[in-house]
């Protein structure tokens, strides 16, 4: 037995409604999205809850989006042709070009690098060498040659097409991990075992700027502790060995004060972290609970 990757914490950056902040009309939900539901670690069983909850909420937003006339797709035909041409050229280059690289070989090398050097226990020097090796593989993947030329469902072409993209994803993960000099959630650095909220309480955003690049550009989006319902603290187990964010103590006291002040759970939630306004209209109602029954017609 050995551990294996089985869930991706992170995905397409989205707004609360599931839409990409950089491309109108592109929505993502569930494991494909960076919707901030899990933070930096996903606890077992929560991906099912995520699928149900984000499917309901984001699905509603998508339906609303499609309902509005101003969102009608209005793309110049020329732009569509340009994209089709450029994608076809990439496939043709693999099918008809002179590339000699073998997609499966590159993929297996990538898998070995990720297992050996970007696994559960990470170290800076391993990550650095993984990034360098993956960059070389990405460059090599630009000269993949496909031997089986059949049209239609061509498994060798599928492997080639996917391997190039897998390598970019592997590089985003490895480069992000190499740069993050702390441990957090599922990312554990043997050389930086402490969680460091002061410097690293921020999400990593990786962007591929150009097809010629071999590394994604990394940017960071800070998390605002002063707006958190539960500022990051001790988890209730393990050593209290972490570096607090400078705002954490003040926010923790503020949260405590709001809770002391009392009120019903809706008032407390509203004071701590209002979210109802971010939901689709039809999901804003107050849910009935066994200890809070609702009268008929209420």
């Amino acid at each position: 037995m050995r551990p294996a990757q089985h869930y991706t914490m992170g995905g397409l950056r989205t707004r609360p409604n599931g839409e990409s902040p950089t491309l109108k009309g592109l929505f993502a939900a569930g494991e494909a999205a960076c919707w901030d539901i899990h933070g930096f670690n996903r606890l077992g069983g929560n991906s099912v809850a995520e699928t149900v909850v984000s499917g309901m909420i984001v699905g509603e937003f998508i339906a609303d989006f499609c309902d509005k006339a101003e969102n009608d797709l209005n793309v110049p035909i020329g732009l569509v042709h340009d994209l089709v041409d450029s994608e076809r050229a990439k496939l043709d280059a693999m099918l008809e070009g002179s590339g000699a690289e073998d997609a499966t070989e590159l993929k297996v090398r990538m898998q070995n690098i990720m297992t050996d050097k970007v696994g559960i226990f990470r170290r800076g020097e391993d990550l650095k060498s993984a990034v360098e090796a993956l960059q070389q593989l990405l460059e090599r993947s630009r000269s993949i040659g496909v031997h089986y030329k059949a049209a239609g469902a061509n498994p060798e072409l599928v492997t080639a097409y996917r391997t190039q993209k897998m390598l970019k994803l592997a590089l985003a993960i490895a480069h992000g991990a190499a740069t993050r000099t702390e441990s957090r959630g599922a990312h554990y650095r043997e050389d930086y075992p402490r969680r460091n909220d002061a410097e690293w309480l921020k999400r990593t955003l990786a962007t591929w700027r150009s097809d010629a690049d071999t590394l994604p550009q990394l940017a960071y989006e800070a998390l605002d502790v002063t707006k958190m319902e539960l500022p990051p603290g001790w988890r209730g187990y393990g050593e209290r060995d972490y570096v607090d964010h400078p705002d954490t103590a003040a926010r923790a006291a503020e949260v405590e004060k709001i809770r002391q002040h009392g009120g019903d759970r809706y008032a407390i939630q509203q004071a701590l972290m209002p979210f109802v306004h971010l939901l689709p209209e039809r999901f804003r109602g107050r849910n009935e609970r066994i200890d809070e029954p609702k009268a008929a017609g209420q």
Partner: peptide, 10 residues
Amino acid sequence: IREKQDPSLQ
């Protein structure tokens, strides 16, 4: 088989 012998196998 597909990885080592025959990448065309569907």
